[in-house]
Structure formats: C-alpha cells, structure tokens
Design a binder for these strands. Structure first.
Lengths: 195, 195
DNA sequence: GATGCATTTGTCATGGTATGAAAATATTGT
DNA sequence: ACAATATTTTCATACCATGACAAATGCATC
C-alpha cells in the first residue's frame, strides 16, 4: 500500500520518458547516449522504460549530457498531463444486472468537468507526414478504432493501436501521424477549456 | 575530472542539508524521522551529512513525510545563496614579487559589485541567546577573529570558528549566536543591495 | 561525575544497478 | 520483397553502494 504510493509517486515524475524525450529530441541512439554517459545501452533502455530507477549519480551523468539540471526530471505537472489507456489494460466494468450481459462499459479516463464538448470522426491516411502541431485550451480524448496513430506532444511520441485511447491537455502543441500501412480511424472528443 | 564535476554537481544540490533543515524545522530527531520513513537513524545521518547518496525511492520516502515533492531537493539557487570558507581550505595567493614575502593575501569570496559597503567589528557574548532574526537587501560577509559563532539562515545553522569566513544573501532572515565558551569577535561587512 | 538522549561512525549483507552479449525489433536501401 | 543495418530489448551475471544494526561519540541536564 505504502510501497504503491511510493513507486507510484516516483513513476509520476516519468523520469524515463523525459530522458527519452531529451534523447530523441537530439536524435541520439541509446548507444550514442551510452558513449557520452558511460552507461550501457541496455541500462539506458531499462531506465527509459521505467524498469529500473537510476541512481542519482547516474541521473546526473545523463543530465550533464543534455545540459539540464536534475530538477528537470522532477518538476511535477500539477494534474497529469496526459494518460494513455491501452486496450489490454482497460478495465471492463462488471455488469451485475443481467446474467447474460448484453452490453459492457469500459471507462475512458477523461477529465472533463462542465466543459463543452465537440466530437469528430478522424481519418489519417498512411504514408503522409504529421499534421501541423497545434494547440488550444482544453482537453482532448482520442479513441483509435482502426490502424495506428502516433501522437506527439511535449517531445514525446505515443503510438496508439486499435482500441487504445488517450487524453491530453491540448494547450500544448500536439500533432498526429498515421504510422501504420493502412488508413487509421479514430474518434476525437475535444473539451474546450477557458484557461 | 569528470567525476569531480559529477559528484560536485550532486553536492551542489545539498540534498542532505535540505533534509536536515526540513527535519529540524519540525524538531524531529533522526530516530523519529526514521520511524516515519522506515529508515535507520544511522542511515539518515549519513544521508544528511552527505556521506552517502540516497536512492530515489529512499528520497521519495523522506519527501512524502514532509509533504514536499522531489523537486524540492533539486531546485537550484541561481547564484549560490551563501558560501562558507574554512580557514583550512582558503587559498593563500602566491606572492611572486618578493623572494622573502612580507605579506599574504587570501581571497574571501564576496560578490559585491558597486554596492556601498559598511563594516563593523562585532562582539558576541557567550551564554546568550541568538540575535533576533533580521533581513535587509544585500550581501553580508563575516570573518571570525576569535571564538565560535553560529549563523542561522534558511533553517540551516553554520558554525564558524576562528579565521573562518562566510557570505550570504542578507535578504533572508538570519541570526547570530555565540556558540563557544568565550567571547567571539568578528568583522562584519555589509553590502547594501537595492533589490 | 553520572545519566539519558541524539547523533555519528564502523562493519556487514543484501538488493538493485550496471555490464556485456545475444535475441528481437525496427529501419533503411537495393 | 529481401537483405543489410541500426536500434532496442532481454537475459544472466557481477559488483558495488546503500541501508540495517550495533557500538561509540557527543551533548546536554541533573
């Protein structure tokens, strides 16, 4: 319980993804970053994917390469900036009313409160470049129906497959890209904010 | 060389002193904090004194107790808030002009630029309480001639002995205290700032 | 000086980091 | 479509620093 809070708390900082964002931002490979930091590529991989927690000296080495302070990895986003919900991990709510259920609900985390909603059916064509990055106040929810879509926000790219969903603060520049060989379709719901 | 930069860089964050400041600020003992964090008192002592670098999970535990985020330990003070220069570590500038030197210079780090100076000879009497904390814009330099003086600023107490010196941003509340059995004397130079 | 508490220091074992290489995956070119 | 290359992940192993424990030191108060 407490250990959950603990590891959860650490995970919330998303140290690994931040490192990955820094690295890909400079278009470096794990091996190259390894040679700069004196770390093995495998180690870096585990750090970036959150399989291990780097020691502070190790994190310091990485920070030095990118010219950032350690605080870079610990600035907390007040409310979680975004969340990806994979089809596999999504929880299907139990339907207790009927013995032979005729429907199911699966919760798509989407922090809207009182904000007006707009919904779109979006199609992204294969072998095209990313959409122009754009930003607008509010929150955006995307649910992928078919195909693969890459969403880039905050220097981080998230690849979503069919039935995956994700929400994010749309105030930060974000762009979409079809990353599969087939057309991708998705439902996009935008909750316009006022801040 | 690089390893110096590394450990130096880590030390600059002064994680240990910050923990100690948090702990003493709540007037907790090492053992008490230990029971809250599940860490041994000895371990905490080593962390606070900088003998070991805590792992991030460990640091997280400590942060949770005080209700601060990890960024608390990594926010860097733009310009160093204060610096203590011990008599032992001070560098005596080589006097190259004379073969038999008649004088020496030792640099007392003191970041004044264009600010008007005031100088005082201060006496602090033994077995008296701290001076009232006070603050005023600028920088202050103190050079201890005799005795022992404790300077408290930012919840951290620095004990200076004879020939030690220290400067600090006087905009933060600070107080002096004679911590030895004998009268302490010191030169205090104040550079009044305008910010 | 003696007692009690807080902090520090020493020693040791454990666990998790870090390595290195091989397997798996992605990417590029022909 | 395939080969070739680059990148990432996985695996088994080694090792080192952390962290626990206990003893020792410091520091007050009686």
């Amino acid at each position: 319980m407490l250990s959950e809070t603990l590891s959860q708390g650490l995970a919330n900082y998303r140290i690994g993804p931040k490192i990955r964002a820094l690295r890909t931002g400079k278009s470096l490979g794990l091996t190259q970053l390894g040679s700069h930091t004196g770390l093995s590529a495998g180690m870096l991989s585990k750090i970036e994917t959150g399989q291990v927690v780097p020691t502070l000296p190790t994190l310091m080495r990485i920070a030095l390469v990118f010219g950032v302070g350690l605080e870079h990895f610990f600035e907390e986003s007040e409310e979680p900036l975004l969340e990806v919900i994979r089809a596999k991990t999504r929880i299907r709510l139990p339907n207790t009313t009927e013995t032979m259920p005729s429907f199911f609900f699966e919760s798509l985390d989407f922090p809207v409160n009182d904000r007006p909603l707009e919904a779109y059916l979006a199609e992204f064509l294969p072998r095209t470049s990313s959409t122009e990055p754009h930003d607008h106040p509010g929150v955006e929810l995307i649910y992928v129906i078919t195909g693969e879509i890459e969403i880039t926000i905050h220097d981080e790219t998230h690849k979503l497959g069919a039935r995956d969903s994700m929400y994010f603060e749309s105030q930060y520049p974000h762009s979409y890209k079809c990353s599969g060989d087939d057309k991708a379709t998705a439902i996009v719901v935008a909750a316009k904010g006022d801040e």
